[in-house]
Each structure stands twice: as C-alpha cells, then as structure tokens.
Simulated scan of single mutants.
Amino acid sequence: MSLRTYVDAWRHSMGAILDLELLPEDADRVTDLPGWSVRDILAHLVHLEDVLADGTETADTAGPSTVPQDYTQAGVDALHDVGLPDLLVRLRELVERRATQLAVLPDDPAAPAPSTPAGAPWTWETLLRNRVIDAWMHEQDLRRALNRSGNLDSPGAQVTVQSFQAALPFVIGKRAKAPSGHPVAVVVTGPVPFAATVVVNDDGRAAIDDDATPETTLTMSTEAFIVLGGGRRKPGQVPVEVDGDTELAHRVLTGLAVTP
C-alpha cells in the first residue's frame, strides 16, 4: 500500500473516534484492554500523536523494534488528570496538525522515519501502517465499550486485517508448531473476508499455500479475527468454528495475538 493510503486510513479512523461524540460519563467505561478505560485510550492516542507532531523522539537504530508497554502506560499516566472533554479537544487539534505535516510524504517508503514512539527504528511505511492499526484497533475498542459497532469494513479495517493475515505463517508455524504436512486454513468471513492456508514444510518453514488441502480449518468473523489478533480477548471468548485438530486449533487461536 502507498503511504498516502495509510495516512488516509489513519485520518478516517481518527475522525470516526472524534465523531463518536463521547460524553464525560463515558470516561470510566471499561474496555477490552486490561486496566484501561475509555479515557485511558483517548489519553494514549493524544500522547502518541503529540510525540509525532512535535518530533521530540528521534528514531534510534539501537532502540527496540516495538513500542514497550511501559512506554505507552507512562503516556497514559502523564495525562491522568486531564478530563475526557479536554482530551478530545487535544486529539482533534493534534490530528489536524499531524495531517498538515503529512501533506507531503517521502518518495521512499523504506526511508527512516524522523520521529517515532519510543525511538523505535521504523521506516516511514512501518510508522504509518502502525498508526493505522493503532488508531483503528482503538476505535474498535471504544465501539465495543460503548456498544456502537461500526467501520468493520473501513480503510483501517483493510490495513489491519491484511497485516494480521501476513503474520499467519509465523503464528501457525512458530507459535502453534503445526506439524509438517498438516495444512491449516484460516477463513475469515464478513466485512473483510479472506481465506489463507498455511503449510509447514519439511525444513520447518511455514508459508501460505492456497493450493494445499486443509486438514484443520478455523472459521471466524472479521471482528473475531481482529479481537484475537489484537490480544483483546482469549480463545473461547469469541465464536470460532473448528474443523479438524482441536488441540492444534487452540494453539493457533492462542498464538493469534500479534499486537498488544
């Protein structure tokens, strides 16, 4: 995908969050993220967009490849005393400011991003793709907390499902340790559907091979897939249909959490 596609998808999700018209009484609603309320999610988004808009944290090639959880928690804690209405005002301002900064994008998606959360050594493509996933996943966290389902077919949904789908060989081969010669299919139905069959070869490497005949198949909705892929809920807490090796299927479902 192009960098502009990522920016447009990120802005769409951010706009959707702001359009939820959250009220002060929504602040303490619990979400699927342990210990985080609706207000905490808004604080997290404000923190990261503020970091990127100000460019205060320069990417460090010696830094971590992912953003540590203690870093994100520290950002939430720093805004502990800011009320929900003020967080929404800040977020709206930051989104507009960041969108202006992203009006001109580099020609090379693989170029190092000049500023990243926690100094993660990300390229422009990695940074902008991760911002889409973070924004859309948190939009969905808020929607579930508020019981306002929507945007399961949005640009952010497309980017997120595609990213989680790309991790299936790692999940099935490395985490679930599927045996060689036992193809495992993941079938996702609904707004962003796909079907992918993963085969572990004799050398232990797993790859998608849609010509293989699955021996175990897991079927679930788009929402179930992203809830599991985002580590929001555990196997057994979302509906999944399994045909084949149930023990292997459970290991796959457990390993689907590829982002916190």
Rank of each mutant, 00 (worst) to 15 (best):
A224Q: 06
V67I: 15
H47F: 09
V227W: 13
R92A: 15
M14L: 14
A74W: 01
T213R: 04
A43G: 12
L102V: 00
A167W: 02
G83Y: 02
A16I: 09
A224H: 00
A9E: 01
P114V: 08
A9Q: 03
L33I: 15
R144V: 15
A62R: 15
V258R: 14
G150A: 09
G75K: 09
V132F: 03
P121F: 12
V200P: 14
G83D: 12
N151Y: 08
D245W: 14
L87P: 00
T219W: 04
D209Y: 03
H138F: 04
A249N: 02
Q162N: 15
R251A: 12
P121K: 10
V240M: 07
L127Y: 09
D50P: 09
A62V: 12
H250Q: 14
A157W: 07
A111P: 10
P214F: 05
F164R: 05
P183S: 08
L152T: 11
P109H: 07
R131N: 07
A9K: 04
W122H: 01
E93S: 15
R29H: 08
P24L: 15
P114Y: 08
P112W: 07
L253W: 10
L94T: 00
A224M: 05
R232E: 10
H12F: 15
E25W: 01
T197A: 05
P179Q: 08
G119C: 13
P169L: 11
V82Y: 02
R11K: 10
T219S: 12
G181R: 08
D40E: 11
G83F: 03
W124T: 06
G156N: 11
T123Y: 02
A206G: 11
K174Q: 02
Q140R: 13
E25P: 09
H47T: 05
I172C: 01
V252K: 03
A185K: 12
V187T: 15
A224K: 01
V184E: 09
Q165L: 13
D28T: 14
L84V: 07
G15F: 12
